[in-house]
Amino acid sequence: MSTQPTTPTIDNDSLEDRLYTVKYDDPGDSHLDVKVPEICADCETNDCVRVCPAEVWREGEDGVPRIAYENCLECSSCRFACEYDNVVWEYPERGGGVTFKRG
């Protein structure tokens, strides 16, 4: 008779705690934007908002996402998620952007 392996108990930090370990040097200007706001206003899926792990993209009242670029992890998920190719995503200026404490 074989025994079922048990699942180990692992105490992980919350997403908010892990995001707190990320340092962002603000270059002063957003490296994120939308190309055509009207496309966002007509979008029904808001994929850029749904895929962002840091909640940088947030639904705006007018349908156009509000962008809190200071929280960006530079993963570019928003760019690939947008089925309309309507996301402007660039790396921040040299010396700005995200620095990870834990690699």
Rank of each mutant, 00 (worst) to 15 (best):
T3S: 13
Q4E: 15
Q4C: 05
P5L: 13
P5H: 02
P5W: 03
T7G: 00
T7K: 13
P8D: 07
T9P: 00
I10K: 10
I10N: 02
D11K: 13
N12A: 14
N12K: 10
L15C: 01
E16K: 11
Y20Q: 14
V22I: 15
V22G: 01
V22D: 07
K23N: 12
Y24V: 15
Y24S: 01
D26M: 05
G28K: 05
G28S: 10
G28Y: 07
D29I: 09
S30N: 04
S30T: 15
H31S: 05
H31M: 01
L32T: 03
K35W: 05
K35F: 08
P37A: 10
E38S: 15
I39A: 07
C40E: 07
A41G: 04
A41R: 13
D42C: 01
D42S: 14
E44D: 15
E44G: 14
N46T: 10
D47Q: 15
V49F: 01
V49L: 02
R50A: 15
V51A: 03
P53S: 10
P53W: 05
A54I: 00
A54C: 06
E55T: 09
V56D: 03
W57D: 01
E59Y: 01
E59C: 00
G63T: 08
V64A: 03
V64S: 08
I67T: 02
I67M: 04
Y69W: 14
E70K: 12
E70W: 04
C72I: 09
L73F: 01
L73M: 15
E74V: 02
E74N: 08
S76W: 11
S77T: 04
R79A: 14
R79M: 14
F80K: 09
F80N: 11
E83W: 09
D85I: 03
N86G: 09
V87P: 00
E90D: 12
Y91I: 02
Y91Q: 11
Y91K: 12
Y91R: 11
P92G: 05
E93G: 10
G95T: 08
F100L: 15
F100T: 10
K101C: 04
K101A: 15
